[in-house]
Design a binder for these strands. Structure first.
Lengths: 154, 154
DNA sequence: AATCTTAATAAGAATAATTCTTATTAAGGA
DNA sequence: TCCTTAATAAGAATTATTCTTATTAAGATT
Protein backbone atom coordinates (compact mmCIF):
# COMPACT_ATOMS: atom_id res chain seq x y z
CA UNK A 1 0.00 0.00 0.00
CA UNK A 2 1.78 3.04 -1.32
CA UNK A 3 -0.19 6.02 -0.09
CA UNK A 4 -1.07 4.94 3.43
CA UNK A 5 0.26 8.16 4.84
CA UNK A 6 -1.65 10.38 2.44
CA UNK A 7 -4.81 8.44 3.22
CA UNK A 8 -4.32 8.90 6.92
CA UNK A 9 -3.59 12.61 6.50
CA UNK A 10 -6.79 13.07 4.54
CA UNK A 11 -8.70 11.33 7.32
CA UNK A 12 -7.08 13.73 9.76
CA UNK A 13 -8.08 16.65 7.52
CA UNK A 14 -11.67 15.42 7.63
CA UNK A 15 -11.64 15.09 11.41
CA UNK A 16 -10.20 18.56 11.89
CA UNK A 17 -12.61 20.06 9.37
CA UNK A 18 -15.60 18.59 11.16
CA UNK A 19 -14.31 19.81 14.50
CA UNK A 20 -13.87 23.33 13.12
CA UNK A 21 -17.18 23.35 11.26
CA UNK A 22 -15.48 23.47 7.88
CA UNK A 23 -16.78 21.52 4.92
CA UNK A 24 -14.67 18.99 3.03
CA UNK A 25 -14.86 19.87 -0.64
CA UNK A 26 -13.30 18.26 -3.68
CA UNK A 27 -11.18 21.39 -4.08
CA UNK A 28 -9.79 21.15 -0.57
CA UNK A 29 -8.91 17.49 -0.94
CA UNK A 30 -7.19 18.01 -4.27
CA UNK A 31 -5.24 21.03 -3.09
CA UNK A 32 -4.13 19.25 0.04
CA UNK A 33 -3.06 16.21 -2.00
CA UNK A 34 -1.10 18.41 -4.38
CA UNK A 35 0.78 20.08 -1.51
CA UNK A 36 1.39 16.73 0.15
CA UNK A 37 2.66 15.04 -2.98
CA UNK A 38 4.95 17.82 -4.11
CA UNK A 39 8.35 17.87 -2.52
CA UNK A 40 9.10 21.30 -4.00
CA UNK A 41 7.17 23.53 -1.54
CA UNK A 42 4.87 24.84 -4.30
CA UNK A 43 3.33 28.29 -4.51
CA UNK A 44 -0.38 28.94 -5.07
CA UNK A 45 -0.12 29.27 -8.83
CA UNK A 46 1.80 26.02 -9.20
CA UNK A 47 -0.87 24.25 -7.17
CA UNK A 48 -3.54 25.86 -9.32
CA UNK A 49 -1.92 24.40 -12.44
CA UNK A 50 -1.46 21.02 -10.78
CA UNK A 51 -5.13 20.60 -9.92
CA UNK A 52 -6.71 22.26 -12.96
CA UNK A 53 -7.23 18.95 -14.75
CA UNK A 54 -8.83 17.34 -11.70
CA UNK A 55 -11.06 20.31 -10.79
CA UNK A 56 -11.71 21.91 -14.20
CA UNK A 57 -13.17 25.30 -13.36
CA UNK A 58 -11.21 25.93 -10.19
CA UNK A 59 -10.29 29.56 -9.53
CA UNK A 60 -6.88 30.71 -8.36
CA UNK A 61 -8.70 32.50 -5.58
CA UNK A 62 -9.98 29.14 -4.35
CA UNK A 63 -6.42 27.91 -4.08
CA UNK A 64 -5.52 30.92 -1.92
CA UNK A 65 -8.62 30.55 0.28
CA UNK A 66 -8.11 26.84 0.63
CA UNK A 67 -4.47 27.20 1.57
CA UNK A 68 -5.55 29.69 4.24
CA UNK A 69 -8.12 27.30 5.64
CA UNK A 70 -5.72 24.34 5.55
CA UNK A 71 -3.25 26.56 7.35
CA UNK A 72 -5.79 27.36 10.05
CA UNK A 73 -6.23 23.60 10.55
CA UNK A 74 -2.47 23.18 10.75
CA UNK A 75 -2.59 20.83 7.80
CA UNK A 76 -0.31 22.95 5.63
CA UNK A 77 2.40 25.40 6.58
CA UNK A 78 3.73 28.52 5.00
CA UNK A 79 7.47 28.45 4.32
CA UNK A 80 9.55 31.55 4.98
CA UNK A 81 11.45 32.26 1.80
CA UNK A 82 11.82 36.04 1.19
CA UNK A 83 10.59 35.26 -2.32
CA UNK A 84 7.61 37.14 -3.77
CA UNK A 85 5.26 34.14 -3.87
CA UNK A 86 4.23 32.34 -0.69
CA UNK A 87 5.25 28.69 -0.63
CA UNK A 88 3.66 25.79 1.19
CA UNK A 89 4.50 22.53 2.87
CA UNK A 90 2.36 19.68 4.23
CA UNK A 91 5.09 18.09 6.33
CA UNK A 92 4.32 18.52 10.02
CA UNK A 93 7.45 16.80 11.26
CA UNK A 94 9.74 19.46 12.74
CA UNK A 95 12.27 20.40 10.14
CA UNK A 96 14.15 23.33 8.67
CA UNK A 97 14.79 24.55 5.15
CA UNK A 98 17.76 25.11 2.90
CA UNK A 99 17.00 27.75 0.27
CA UNK A 100 19.18 27.85 -2.81
CA UNK A 101 19.61 31.50 -3.75
CA UNK A 102 20.44 30.50 -7.30
CA UNK A 103 17.58 28.17 -8.35
CA UNK A 104 15.15 29.15 -5.53
CA UNK A 105 14.63 25.50 -4.70
CA UNK A 106 13.72 24.79 -1.08
CA UNK A 107 15.14 21.62 0.48
CA UNK A 108 13.97 20.05 3.75
CA UNK A 109 16.73 19.62 6.29
CA UNK A 110 16.59 17.98 9.70
CA UNK A 111 18.76 19.58 12.35
CA UNK A 112 19.22 18.29 15.87
CA UNK A 113 20.40 21.78 16.89
CA UNK A 114 16.91 23.16 16.22
CA UNK A 115 15.93 21.76 19.60
CA UNK A 116 18.75 23.69 21.26
CA UNK A 117 17.35 26.90 19.80
CA UNK A 118 13.87 26.25 21.15
CA UNK A 119 15.27 25.35 24.57
CA UNK A 120 17.43 28.46 24.72
CA UNK A 121 14.56 30.79 23.83
CA UNK A 122 12.26 29.20 26.38
CA UNK A 123 14.88 29.23 29.11
CA UNK A 124 15.61 32.90 28.52
CA UNK A 125 11.93 33.77 28.83
CA UNK A 126 11.94 35.90 25.68
CA UNK A 127 8.30 35.11 25.03
CA UNK A 128 5.73 32.37 24.77
CA UNK A 129 7.16 30.28 21.92
CA UNK A 130 4.77 28.95 19.30
CA UNK A 131 7.27 27.77 16.74
CA UNK A 132 10.90 27.99 15.78
CA UNK A 133 11.78 28.58 12.21
CA UNK A 134 15.22 28.06 10.71
CA UNK A 135 16.24 28.69 7.14
CA UNK A 136 19.68 28.35 5.72
CA UNK A 137 20.42 30.30 2.58
CA UNK A 138 23.16 29.26 0.20
CA UNK A 139 24.01 27.45 -3.01
CA UNK A 140 22.76 23.90 -3.37
CA UNK A 141 25.10 21.13 -4.58
CA UNK A 142 23.28 20.96 -7.93
CA UNK A 143 23.89 24.65 -8.71
CA UNK A 144 27.42 24.39 -7.34
CA UNK A 145 28.16 21.62 -9.89
CA UNK A 146 26.61 23.51 -12.77
CA UNK A 147 28.87 26.43 -11.91
CA UNK A 148 31.93 24.19 -12.05
CA UNK A 149 30.89 22.64 -15.38
CA UNK A 150 30.39 26.05 -16.91
CA UNK A 151 33.82 27.17 -15.78
CA UNK A 152 35.41 24.38 -17.84
CA UNK A 153 34.30 26.21 -20.96
CA UNK A 154 35.19 29.72 -19.91
CA UNK B 1 29.62 61.54 21.90
CA UNK B 2 26.29 59.81 21.46
CA UNK B 3 26.15 58.70 17.84
CA UNK B 4 29.68 57.54 17.31
CA UNK B 5 28.46 54.26 15.92
CA UNK B 6 26.05 55.86 13.46
CA UNK B 7 28.82 58.18 12.29
CA UNK B 8 31.15 55.28 11.73
CA UNK B 9 28.49 53.31 9.88
CA UNK B 10 27.84 56.24 7.57
CA UNK B 11 31.57 56.43 6.86
CA UNK B 12 31.46 52.75 6.04
CA UNK B 13 28.47 53.34 3.78
CA UNK B 14 30.47 55.99 1.94
CA UNK B 15 33.47 53.71 1.55
CA UNK B 16 31.39 50.86 0.20
CA UNK B 17 29.47 53.17 -2.13
CA UNK B 18 32.66 54.51 -3.64
CA UNK B 19 34.02 51.01 -4.06
CA UNK B 20 30.83 49.92 -5.83
CA UNK B 21 30.58 53.08 -7.95
CA UNK B 22 27.38 54.17 -6.21
CA UNK B 23 26.73 57.81 -5.35
CA UNK B 24 26.05 58.98 -1.82
CA UNK B 25 22.86 61.01 -1.94
CA UNK B 26 20.97 62.81 0.79
CA UNK B 27 18.15 60.30 0.34
CA UNK B 28 20.45 57.34 0.90
CA UNK B 29 21.95 58.85 4.03
CA UNK B 30 18.58 59.70 5.52
CA UNK B 31 17.08 56.32 4.73
CA UNK B 32 20.06 54.54 6.19
CA UNK B 33 19.88 56.70 9.33
CA UNK B 34 16.19 55.97 9.72
CA UNK B 35 16.74 52.21 9.49
CA UNK B 36 19.68 52.43 11.87
CA UNK B 37 17.87 54.52 14.46
CA UNK B 38 14.65 52.53 14.47
CA UNK B 39 14.66 49.47 16.65
CA UNK B 40 11.35 48.30 15.18
CA UNK B 41 12.58 46.79 11.89
CA UNK B 42 10.55 49.24 9.80
CA UNK B 43 8.95 48.62 6.42
CA UNK B 44 9.45 50.85 3.37
CA UNK B 45 6.35 52.96 3.99
CA UNK B 46 7.27 53.64 7.61
CA UNK B 47 10.71 54.79 6.49
CA UNK B 48 9.10 56.95 3.83
CA UNK B 49 7.04 58.71 6.51
CA UNK B 50 10.05 59.02 8.80
CA UNK B 51 12.19 60.85 6.25
CA UNK B 52 9.50 62.94 4.52
CA UNK B 53 10.23 66.00 6.64
CA UNK B 54 13.97 65.76 6.01
CA UNK B 55 13.72 65.05 2.28
CA UNK B 56 10.50 66.84 1.32
CA UNK B 57 9.66 65.49 -2.14
CA UNK B 58 11.02 62.03 -1.68
CA UNK B 59 9.14 59.28 -3.51
CA UNK B 60 8.20 55.94 -1.97
CA UNK B 61 9.89 54.36 -4.97
CA UNK B 62 13.15 55.96 -3.90
CA UNK B 63 12.84 54.28 -0.53
CA UNK B 64 12.43 50.93 -2.22
CA UNK B 65 15.32 51.50 -4.60
CA UNK B 66 17.54 52.79 -1.85
CA UNK B 67 16.79 49.84 0.41
CA UNK B 68 17.73 47.58 -2.48
CA UNK B 69 21.03 49.37 -2.99
CA UNK B 70 21.82 49.44 0.73
CA UNK B 71 21.06 45.74 0.76
CA UNK B 72 23.48 45.13 -2.08
CA UNK B 73 26.15 46.90 -0.01
CA UNK B 74 25.26 44.74 3.00
CA UNK B 75 24.43 47.87 4.96
CA UNK B 76 20.82 46.86 5.59
CA UNK B 77 19.22 43.45 5.78
CA UNK B 78 15.80 42.15 4.95
CA UNK B 79 14.07 40.43 7.85
CA UNK B 80 12.08 37.26 7.24
CA UNK B 81 8.64 37.84 8.70
CA UNK B 82 5.88 36.17 6.63
CA UNK B 83 4.14 39.55 6.83
CA UNK B 84 3.03 41.27 3.61
CA UNK B 85 5.45 44.19 3.86
CA UNK B 86 9.21 43.63 3.76
CA UNK B 87 10.99 44.79 6.92
CA UNK B 88 14.55 45.97 7.34
CA UNK B 89 17.35 45.99 9.85
CA UNK B 90 20.72 47.78 9.95
CA UNK B 91 22.27 45.61 12.64
CA UNK B 92 25.03 43.47 11.17
CA UNK B 93 25.89 41.65 14.39
CA UNK B 94 24.70 38.05 14.04
CA UNK B 95 21.34 37.79 15.74
CA UNK B 96 17.93 36.20 15.43
CA UNK B 97 14.38 37.51 15.68
CA UNK B 98 11.38 36.95 17.88
CA UNK B 99 8.16 37.80 16.03
CA UNK B 100 5.07 38.45 18.09
CA UNK B 101 2.13 37.02 16.15
CA UNK B 102 -0.24 39.33 18.02
CA UNK B 103 1.30 42.81 17.62
CA UNK B 104 3.66 41.92 14.73
CA UNK B 105 6.57 43.49 16.60
CA UNK B 106 9.97 42.03 15.79
CA UNK B 107 12.48 41.74 18.63
CA UNK B 108 16.19 41.10 18.27
CA UNK B 109 17.41 38.08 20.17
CA UNK B 110 20.91 36.77 20.62
CA UNK B 111 21.18 33.00 20.75
CA UNK B 112 24.36 31.04 21.38
CA UNK B 113 22.65 28.01 19.81
CA UNK B 114 22.62 29.81 16.44
CA UNK B 115 26.26 28.83 16.10
CA UNK B 116 25.36 25.17 16.64
CA UNK B 117 22.91 25.39 13.76
CA UNK B 118 25.49 26.82 11.39
CA UNK B 119 28.05 24.23 12.44
CA UNK B 120 25.60 21.38 11.96
CA UNK B 121 24.63 22.49 8.46
CA UNK B 122 28.23 22.93 7.42
CA UNK B 123 29.31 19.62 8.87
CA UNK B 124 26.50 17.79 7.07
CA UNK B 125 27.51 19.29 3.71
CA UNK B 126 23.96 20.22 2.78
CA UNK B 127 25.17 23.09 0.63
CA UNK B 128 27.44 26.09 0.50
CA UNK B 129 26.06 28.15 3.40
CA UNK B 130 25.73 31.90 2.94
CA UNK B 131 23.67 32.70 5.98
CA UNK B 132 21.60 31.12 8.70
CA UNK B 133 18.35 32.68 9.63
CA UNK B 134 16.36 31.92 12.77
CA UNK B 135 13.01 33.35 13.71
CA UNK B 136 10.98 32.40 16.70
CA UNK B 137 7.25 33.03 16.51
CA UNK B 138 5.15 33.49 19.59
CA UNK B 139 3.50 35.96 21.95
CA UNK B 140 5.70 38.67 23.41
CA UNK B 141 5.58 39.46 27.16
CA UNK B 142 3.79 42.75 26.48
CA UNK B 143 0.90 41.08 24.64
CA UNK B 144 0.86 38.26 27.18
CA UNK B 145 0.29 40.81 29.96
CA UNK B 146 -2.43 42.65 28.07
CA UNK B 147 -4.22 39.35 27.66
CA UNK B 148 -4.09 38.72 31.39
CA UNK B 149 -5.34 42.23 32.23
CA UNK B 150 -8.27 41.81 29.86
CA UNK B 151 -9.24 38.53 31.46
CA UNK B 152 -9.69 40.28 34.80
CA UNK B 153 -12.72 42.05 33.34
CA UNK B 154 -14.25 39.12 31.49
C1' DA C 1 35.03 76.94 -9.79
C1' DA C 2 32.90 75.47 -14.21
C1' DT C 3 31.91 71.65 -17.03
C1' DC C 4 30.59 67.04 -18.07
C1' DT C 5 29.01 62.39 -17.63
C1' DT C 6 25.75 59.54 -15.98
C1' DA C 7 23.71 57.60 -11.67
C1' DA C 8 19.82 58.75 -8.91
C1' DT C 9 15.54 60.97 -8.39
C1' DA C 10 10.32 62.27 -8.52
C1' DA C 11 6.13 61.37 -10.49
C1' DG C 12 3.09 58.55 -11.83
C1' DA C 13 1.99 54.40 -14.58
C1' DA C 14 2.43 49.43 -14.50
C1' DT C 15 2.84 44.88 -12.60
C1' DA C 16 2.41 40.92 -9.56
C1' DA C 17 0.55 38.63 -5.72
C1' DT C 18 -3.23 38.29 -3.07
C1' DT C 19 -7.89 39.40 -1.40
C1' DC C 20 -12.60 40.97 -1.89
C1' DT C 21 -17.56 41.07 -3.88
C1' DT C 22 -21.41 38.81 -5.41
C1' DA C 23 -24.32 35.56 -7.43
C1' DT C 24 -24.43 30.55 -7.59
C1' DT C 25 -23.48 25.88 -6.05
C1' DA C 26 -23.17 22.08 -3.09
C1' DA C 27 -21.82 20.08 1.86
C1' DG C 28 -23.85 17.78 5.14
C1' DG C 29 -27.25 18.13 9.04
C1' DA C 30 -32.28 17.70 9.83
C1' DT D 1 -35.33 15.02 0.20
C1' DC D 2 -35.09 19.38 1.96
C1' DC D 3 -32.67 23.37 4.05
C1' DT D 4 -29.24 26.15 5.78
C1' DT D 5 -25.21 28.28 4.92
C1' DA D 6 -20.23 27.53 3.87
C1' DA D 7 -17.55 27.34 -0.27
C1' DT D 8 -17.07 28.31 -4.99
C1' DA D 9 -16.17 30.75 -9.71
C1' DA D 10 -15.59 34.88 -11.95
C1' DG D 11 -13.86 38.89 -12.18
C1' DA D 12 -13.04 43.35 -9.89
C1' DA D 13 -10.26 45.50 -6.37
C1' DT D 14 -6.44 46.12 -3.35
C1' DT D 15 -1.69 46.13 -1.75
C1' DA D 16 3.16 45.95 -2.14
C1' DT D 17 6.58 46.65 -5.20
C1' DT D 18 8.80 47.80 -9.63
C1' DC D 19 9.14 50.12 -14.02
C1' DT D 20 9.31 54.30 -17.38
C1' DT D 21 10.77 58.69 -18.43
C1' DA D 22 12.08 63.28 -18.07
C1' DT D 23 14.83 65.91 -14.80
C1' DT D 24 18.28 66.65 -11.27
C1' DA D 25 22.54 66.46 -9.03
C1' DA D 26 26.87 63.47 -7.52
C1' DG D 27 31.36 63.70 -8.14
C1' DA D 28 35.09 63.14 -11.57
C1' DT D 29 37.64 65.98 -14.84
C1' DT D 30 39.23 70.02 -16.25
Amino acid sequence: MQNAELKERIEELKRRSKKAGLRVTKQRIEIFKAVFESKAHPDAETLYNLIKNKVPNVALDTVYRTLASLESLNMVFRVDSLLPKARFDADYTPHSHFLCTKCNEIYDIFLTSATDVKNEVQKKGIGNVVDVNIQVRGICPKCENEKKEKNLWN
